[in-house]
């Protein structure tokens, strides 16, 4: 199996503080979808930002991140910017603030396209409208000419999805893309995401604290705790037979359908001492 993304011994620290991610290894094959599960502070978002090269400049990153054989650690901002948005892209957690409030949605999607594909405004517009339709907008023209404040949270997240996928990147990193949304909207956004990832044939690194969401989208799962991977396997394996006590705790809290009526709700602390 050839890896699209290969992360080896990745450690990340800020300033002079202790590392928040230590000795992390990840492998992602082309077309594969890997879920990263962990609570806030476990280092999953920092890992995603490190892969994208979007960490603040006081971050110290060591180890290796290879995308399609290209080493990303140590690349300049300029060199990384040629990869970002083209071969890999990212969907963020907060759709309400992820878009520039002073630009129309269409122009922001078009920017991504024109940066890497074709500077021609007309062809960019065509590509943008096609992409907006692909993420489920029937009225793509209207959405393209709307400012972010004129769109709902779910609509904005689909615009961000369109920005991330308009160049058909090999890797899409999703950082809790539905956490900030209503449950009903979540389902739509996840379905759209599933469809466009499939259509583009992109691999996906899907970050979430929510096992149920991950299991819908991902074939494989890693569980992170305090900057380390504590469990890895197929989604089915991790859900049915978690080996690390922390993973077992997460599964127990997620599978409330298995609960005997009348018993106390389980917590992660029942399974492992969370520092």
């Amino acid at each position: 199996m050839t890896s699209l993304l290969q992360v080896r011994d990745l450690s990340i620290a800020f300033g002079r503080k202790d590392p928040v991610v230590r000795g992390l290894d990840l492998d992602l094959a082309a077309g594969q979808r890997l879920g990263i599960i962990g609570e806030s502070g476990s280092g999953k978002t920092v890992t995603a930002l490190a892969i994208m090269g979007l960490l603040p400049d006081n971050a110290r990153v060591t180890g290796s991140i290879r995308l399609d054989g290209t080493e990303l650690v140590g690349l300049s901002d300029r060199a990384l910017s040629r990869v970002r948005g083209d071969r890999m892209s990212m969907i963020f957690q907060e759709p309400m603030t992820a878009l520039d409030p002073t630009m129309t949605a269409g122009r922001q999607v078009a920017e991504a396209f024109r940066l890497h594909r074709d500077r021609d405004a007309g062809r960019a517009r065509t590509a943008v409208l096609a992409m907006l339709r692909a993420v489920g907008f029937d009225d793509a023209e209207r959405v393209a000419d709307s400012y972010p404040h004129q769109l709902s949270g779910g609509q904005r997240q689909r615009v961000v999805t369109a920005m991330a996928l308009v160049n058909r990147p090999g890797l899409v990193i999703c950082d809790e893309p539905t956490t900030a949304l209503d449950v009903t909207v979540q389902a739509t956004v996840l379905r759209v995401l599933d469809e466009v990832l499939e259509a583009v044939g992109a691999s996906c690194l899907f970050i979430s604290h929510d096992l149920a969401v991950v299991s819908q989208l991902c074939s494989d799962v890693v569980v992170m705790l305090n900057g380390r991977v504590v469990e890895r396997g197929t989604a089915e394996q991790v859900f049915t037979d978690p080996r690390h006590p922390y993973a077992a705790g997460l599964v127990a809290t997620a599978r409330l359908d298995l609960l005997e009526p009348g018993t106390r709700l389980p917590t992660v602390a029942d399974h492992v001492r969370v520092p």
């Binding site: 901002d77 040629r82 948005g85 630009m103 991504a112 890497h116 920005m163």
Partner: peptide
């Protein structure tokens, strides 16, 4: 510190060009 600045960088603007393009407007 804004999220949309990070989004702009994520689609392939360098720090400087993201600031020139989205920072000045905002």
């Amino acid at each position: 510190g804004e999220d949309h600045y990070r989004t702009a960088r994520s689609i392939g603007w360098t720090r400087w060009r993201a600031l020139a393009r989205h920072g000045v407007r905002n």
